[in-house]
Write a protein that binds this DNA or RNA. Sequence first.
DNA 1: CGCAGACTTGACCGCGCTCAATGCGAGTGG
DNA 2: CCACTCGCATTGAGCGCGGTCAAGTCTGCG
Lengths: 248, 248
Amino acid sequence: MAQVIKLHPASSLRASCHQCSLSNLCLPLAVEESDLDRLEDIIQQGRIFSRGEHIFQQNAPFRSVYAVRSGAVKTSIITENGEEQVTGFYMPGELVGLDSMSNETYACNAKALERTSICEFPVERLEDLTARLPGLQHHFFQLMSQEIRGSHQLSILLSKNTAEERIAALLLSLSSRFQRRRMSGTAFSLPMARNDIANFLGLAVETVSRVFTRFQNQGVIKARGREVELMDLGALQMIARDPERQSL
Amino acid sequence: MAQVIKLHPASSLRASCHQCSLSNLCLPLAVEESDLDRLEDIIQQGRIFSRGEHIFQQNAPFRSVYAVRSGAVKTSIITENGEEQVTGFYMPGELVGLDSMSNETYACNAKALERTSICEFPVERLEDLTARLPGLQHHFFQLMSQEIRGSHQLSILLSKNTAEERIAALLLSLSSRFQRRRMSGTAFSLPMARNDIANFLGLAVETVSRVFTRFQNQGVIKARGREVELMDLGALQMIARDPERQSL
DNA sequence: CGCAGACTTGACCGCGCTCAATGCGAGTGG
DNA sequence: CCACTCGCATTGAGCGCGGTCAAGTCTGCG
């Protein structure tokens, strides 16, 4: 079982919310510098999970929410008939586990898609803290609200859009999330397998594969394995946005 | 524009969170009696909306979340291409608007499906209060978390299940929500039109209609217009749950 | 080097969408 | 009271997107 890695003296780790390049994503701008110290006191920072390792498992007792620091995380639910449904992909700066805050147990599985560094927020102490820091409470309301809206967006995607539209939307979402981290928004490596993409988007793997090659033949993307290059962002946006697009 | 109705002296209105038969749905059991008084101070109670009237509109400045007291509410998003997507139906005791707490504006429209009574929670004052009452804060985290999970469930329904399974699941959801209010869980009147059901479930109206008649021919339900009677709950659960069901 | 898992490609078919017509109940006015 | 209309619901015919099944190919890892 992975443990908190202590490569540095505690003081160096303590300081890292301030230093962390993600702090304005994962943490609120609204949180004062002084409040940041209080937050850091309760956080377990930088635990490493290797590829395929679970961060938490469905139905395990709920203790913490988790921020992705590097790498990528996939969340999924095992339905009553034993099938897996991928509910989300989480990139650095994003919070995992907010959907479990109503329960005594985790509502989904969270698994590292690659070597991933995670910060842990124990909820019991977090709720004490949010009660004392109105800015932090507001931030958490915001984060959860965003999660709801994101999930609504996903529902729309799944219920109204074609395979091409769904995949274009996913590629654009990943693009903007890479770009937010000052990485290339047009050439990146997909952290997840085709299977996960298909499952997440409610498609068959074969369909995902076909759409990828179709996009490639149209010159919209280049893809080899998990390496993707978005050649024509405009075209992708057209595809994702406009169900009634005419040509190409 | 509808105004707060003042049929009773203020004192009578003031007391009604205690009296309200929904209080253990809409409000936390965790909230102490004494805290309930504080909550009541900030609530606008019992405003009436007639059928088709908006409770709030997408992109309007966000001020409040709303609890349904009687009637029913439909929320929807207008997408960039001008299409409507129904994101939820809200019954008495349920909170509307939680998906907007990350924003300065409402993320969706909320419309009364029938004559509906609504309690309003101004968020600015609510956040002050939740910061002082840990139980209330916890309750709101729970409510929002439930909303996320519900939306994930919807995503699964939309991405994995057939038309019959989706409709069976909706009927069962409505059934249990009516039952929670001590109303019949087997015979009720749908608050929404077929169109809304279709939109919500990502289906065509024609498909909804066909599935209703198919269910009826199988003796699983009786339906005439919006009046529905669930004849065989077990069968419905079978249909909703098990994609690999054999007979019937 | 060889195997397993991931990805691609092809052939076929069925669910659910589209288009179009009809049924039906409620509200309106002559 | 009936004729008319309008919105909503139902029913039918046809078809296309994407699922399923089945090979085949590529890739990485031991």
